[in-house]
């Protein structure tokens, strides 16, 4: 394989990772529709879901094009099985209560902002211009999720208890955010992306600072972080989510909607 082909293949796979993150998280947020704790949050959660799903569409479209097998964004979204999804384990966790959803969102948003800002300098022009848009949206999302984290952490005893529990459950999925593998190493060398390990410090500083401000205890780092999402090794919840998400599309293969 030529290095150009290899680069294209790697970019396709990388776009799929980012796209799946946003597709799965956007879908999870959309599950709140009609059930948010207050009408104003229906709008907010809906907005974030829309931003993420829209970003996912662009990334999956891009992945399909680079892959060169004629798959559209919809083909990728609705006709891949669980083991072919490349999203982080963090984003596939079921919604839980509002504290859990906000904690999951905050941990992702803080990461997403740093990631997007770094990608603005990518040697791949389309990825760089995507990152510019994503960074703006991530900044707005982070503002929202951070404020809620503070409100719930510093609100009532009940809200603090729930938020503390949520952080405790989710922390084990945060290691995966900063993983490197051969694909990433090749893309770093090609100056398309940068080492995600470099994000770990700023991310920790941001989140630990917020926890302190909220009066929450920082979760203890476990001996071993959950991982595997980038290789298609997901938990059972994602399969159930995809059964729902893909059911109509799969019932009418080849149909136009």
């Amino acid at each position: 394989m030529t290095s150009e082909n290899r680069l294209q293949r790697d970019l396709a796979e990388y776009s799929l990772r980012l796209g799946d993150d946003r597709l799965v998280l956007g879908h999870r947020l959309s599950e709140w529709c009609g059930h948010a704790p207050v009408l104003e949050e229906e709008l907010a959660l809906g907005n974030f879901a829309l931003d993420l799903l829209d970003q996912a569409s662009l990334l999956l479209e891009s992945a399909g094009r680079l892959e060169g097998r004629g798959r559209s964004a919809d083909d990728l979204a609705f006709f891949r099985d669980v083991t072919e999804f490349r999203n982080l384990l963090l984003v596939e966790q079921p919604n839980g209560d509002f504290a859990f959803t906000i904690a999951r969102q905050y941990l992702f948003d803080a990461f997403d902002l740093h990631l997007s800002v770094a990608l603005e300098a990518s040697g791949d022009r389309p990825l760089a211009s995507f990152a510019v848009r994503a960074a703006k949206e991530a900044a707005y999302h982070l503002r929202h999720s951070r404020e809620w984290l503070l409100r719930l952490g510093g609100g009532t005893d009940e809200s603090r208890r729930r938020m503390q529990a949520a952080l405790g459950e989710l922390w084990i999925f945060t290691g995966e955010l900063f993983e490197t593998d051969d694909l990433v190493r090749r893309l770093v060398e090609a100056r398309v992306v940068f080492d995600p390990e470099a994000l770990r410090g700023p991310w920790r500083e941001e989140v630990l600072g917020t926890f302190a401000e909220a009066g929450l205890e920082a979760p203890k780092d476990p001996a071993w972080m959950q991982r595997g999402g980038r290789d298609g090794r997901h938990g059972e919840a994602l399969g159930r989510m995809l059964s729902d998400m893909q059911s109509v599309a799969r019932a009418f293969p080849g149909a136009r909607w």
């Binding site: 104003e40 709008l43 907010a44 907005n47 503002r143 404020e147 409100r151």
Partner: peptide, 19 residues
């Protein structure tokens, strides 16, 4: 709009009236 604090008031206002 209804909001508990200034920050949420701004964000809600944007979501409701300027999205």
């Amino acid at each position: 709009i209804h909001a508990p604090d200034r920050e949420m008031a701004l964000q809600n206002a944007r979501d409701v009236y300027a999205r």
